[in-house]
Design a protein around this nucleic acid. Structure first.
Lengths: 224, 224
DNA sequence: AGACGATCTTCATAAAATCTTAATTTACTC
DNA sequence: GAGTAAATTAAGATTTTATGAAGATCGTCT
C-alpha cells in the first residue's frame, strides 16, 4: 500500500511518515501544494493525506483539481481544530474523510485503513437520507428502490444537500457550489431547481425530505 | 451581528449583502469612502469590510483614520488580485485581515467569522442556557431536546440574547444589532417579537428563561 | 451547417410566511 | 391610584417562496 503525505510542517510530517512506515505502508512526502499535486497526478497511490493549509496551493484546491481530473484515490484531509468551514470545504471538494489537528497517530492509522477498506468493497460511499439514496460514483439516485433520473445540475444540488443533511444550506452556498464563483446571481435559479427536485423526489410521497427554512435556505432531512 | 460593508461596485456589494444577510448578519452598505468612514465612526459594528479602491477616500485612509481615533473594530480589506502593494499598505494601516478579489463567498464568510471569534471568548459553536440550545451553524433551536422553529428575526434576537446571557440587553441594543441602519423605529417591534419568542420558548414551561427588567430591557437566564 | 432534444435560465404570478404597526389590556413604580 | 412601561393581539403591509411556462443555450447527430 502506497500513501502520499502532503504536509508542510517538517516535524509532523516526519512523525507521520515514521509511524506509517512501521505499519507497513510505503510513504512519499511532499512539503507544499504544487509538489503534492504533481506527485498525486504522476504517481499512483492507494491513499492521499492532505493538509489544508499549505504553501503554494492549499489542500482544498489540490483535492478539487484531482476530482475534476477524474482521480478517485481516497483522500483524507487534515484540518485545523474547530474550523467547521475547513471541514465543509474539504468534504465538499471531494475528500473522503477528515481529521482535526491535533490527533492521535492511532486515529490517523485507523482512518486510513477504513478508507482503504472502503475502496475495495464499495467504490464510493452512498449518501442516504431515509429511503433516498444517491451514489456519487455511479451517478444514480433512487427513492424506495425506484430509480430517479436527474439532470446534471439537479444531481449536483441534491448531492450537495445530502452531504449536508440535517443542516441548513443557503441559496448562496448552493450557487457557489454548483455554479462557479463569478456567477452573478440575482435570479431565482435555485428556487426553480428546488421545484423540479421536489417534483422528482418528494411528489406523491407522504414523507417529504426537502424542507424550506423561510428566510434562510433549504435542508434535507426526515424531520422538518 | 452587525456588519458595515464599504464597496463601490453596486453589483458586488448587493451580492455580498445578500449572502451575509442569509447568514444572519445585519448589513449596512456604504458606496464611497466618506460615507463609509462616517458610518464607521457614528454607528457601532461588529466587523467592517473595506474595499481599498473607493471614490472620495480609499480604504487604507479610512482604516488609518479609525485606528488613529482608537476604534478597535475588526477590519477586513478587499484588495485587487496580485497587488502586493495594496496588501502591505492595508495590513500596515491596521486592517486585521485581507482577501483578494475575486473570492468565493464562503471564503469571505469564514474570514469574517474568524475575526468575530477572535474578538470574543472563543465562541463555542452551540449556545446554551439551561435546557435551551441554539446552534448558529445549523440554524436550529431546541428546548429540552424538542426542536423549536423560529423566523429569521426571532432567531437573531434570541441569538443576541443568548450571546449576552445573564446580562441586560436594552431595546436599543437589540434594534441596533438585528436591524440595519435604514430602520427608523419608534414602535414596539422588539416587544412584539419578545411576545412571540416567549410564546415559543417559555410558554407552558415551569422555568421561564426570558425576563423583563422594567425600565431597562431584557435578559435571558435561569434566574430572574 | 442545421435541426433536434435536453437542459438551463428567466420571468410572471400566485401563495405563503414574516414583519410591522397600532390599539388594547395588563403590570409595575412611586 | 395615577402615570408609565410592557405584554398581547390581530390586521394590514411587505417580503419571500413556489411553480409553470416561455425563451435561451448547449450538445449531439445527421
Amino acid at each position: 500500500m502506497r500513501i502520499l503525505l502532503v504536509e508542510d510542517e517538517k516535524h509532523l510530517s516526519d512523525n507521520i511518515k515514521k509511524g506509517l512506515s512501521e505499519a507497513g505502508f510505503a510513504v512519499d512526502a511532499a512539503f507544499d501544494g504544487e509538489e503534492g499535486l504533481y506527485l498525486a497526478t504522476t504517481e499512483t497511490y492507494d491513499c492521499i493525506i492532505l493538509d489544508i493549509m499549505l504553501p503554494k496551493m492549499d489542500g482544498v484546491k489540490i483535492c478539487e483539481t484531482m476530482r475534476l481530473k477524474g482521480y478517485k484515490t481516497p483522500i483524507l484531509m487534515l484540518t485545523a481544530k474547530g474550523s467547521v468551514e475547513e471541514v465543509a470545504q474539504g468534504l465538499d471538494s471531494g475528500a473522503d474523510d477528515y481529521l482535526t489537528k491535533p490527533f492521535a497517530f492511532i486515529e490517523l492509522k485507523s482512518r486510513i485503513q477504513a478508507l482503504l477498506r472502503r475502496g475495495q468493497t464499495e467504490a464510493s460511499p452512498v449518501l442516504r437520507v431515509a429511503d433516498l439514496e444517491l451514489d456519487p460514483g455511479k451517478h444514480t439516485v433512487s427513492r424506495a428502490g425506484k430509480g430517479i433520473s436527474l439532470t446534471p445540475k439537479e444531481f449536483s444540488i441534491l448531492e450537495y444537500l445530502m452531504r449536508h443533511r440535517g443542516e441548513v444550506v443557503t441559496r448562496t452556498m448552493i450557487i457557489e457550489h454548483v455554479w462557479d464563483i463569478n456567477y452573478e446571481n440575482m435570479s431565482n435559479v435555485v428556487d426553480a431547481f428546488m421545484a423540479t427536485l421536489r417534483k422528482k423526489v418528494d411528489k406523491n410521497r407522504s414523507v417529504k425530505l426537502i424542507h424550506t427554512l423561510h428566510g434562510v435556505g433549504f435542508k434535507i432531512s426526515t424531520k422538518p
